[in-house]
Design a protein around this nucleic acid. Sequence first.
DNA 1: TATCATCACGTTCAAATGAACGTAAACGGA
DNA 2: TCCGTTTACGTTCATTTGAACGTGATGATA
Lengths: 137, 137
Amino acid sequence: MAPKREAPRGALPKSELEIAKVVWELGEATVRQVLEALPVERELDFWTVQTYLRRLEAKGYLAKRRDGRNNVYSPAVRPTTVISETMDDFINRLFDGEALPLFQHLIRDRDLSDAEIDELQQTLNTLKADRKRGRSS
Amino acid sequence: MAPKREAPRGALPKSELEIAKVVWELGEATVRQVLEALPVERELDFWTVQTYLRRLEAKGYLAKRRDGRNNVYSPAVRPTTVISETMDDFINRLFDGEALPLFQHLIRDRDLSDAEIDELQQTLNTLKADRKRGRSS
DNA sequence: TATCATCACGTTCAAATGAACGTAAACGGA
DNA sequence: TCCGTTTACGTTCATTTGAACGTGATGATA
């Protein structure tokens, strides 16, 4: 059965993604908790954060639970899913859906440390090995 | 001397990027040429394309040259620069500026062919070798 | 040289997005 | 139990983005 993407859910806008990320990190959070978890230089209003959380819930990205007088928000869609969708969108837009050119650019542009390069090679080797073995799911 | 990023030029919107990419591919192009270079299923108006090209010029991404009655647009900023900026913005938004997690996600999520994996490894090896040698710009 | 098609430019318009508020309800401490 | 504080919800507002048009100018062709 295909993974069946519930709804296309076109890529999240900047600000909403930013807020969603905070919720992901915290696991679940109230408006105030999100506000406090934001970097200090990012001076967002309590109300603004509230707005984004509400929108995220309306779009189906977050679930809302009541805890006393507070709303507690938590992921309704797995973060990795959202990240994948966002990356897909990005790759489609910039590289016609080809991952390879993105890699090349990335490798060349970002100053990767030697350690990071090693780590990447490691990952690739592992992936390759896994491929040879079980080629399932 | 530092590369000196002229203006922050916050990441291009979807549609404008789409049009800019066409210009990059063609090297330079008139409105009509861009329109015709777009995939057929993308039914954009002549006027709409014109608008985006104009905006891109206003933002400093494209240069405009007159050829008879036509405007001919060409890159005013190197495409690779724009791509880098766009990627930076994306990585900042989604991965706090860390390239590595992006790689991991990418490697795991996109179904890379064996050949692609090989190519990546090749690239990494080359990069590593180059590093050892001249470390300057 | 008159005509017709094409083009540039300014302008417009709706929807999405970033950001914020006012009010009324709910809670905890005095 | 009353008061001050905090929160939710609906609502609003400006800007950006996606998309398109009308008019006047321009050039090729008859």
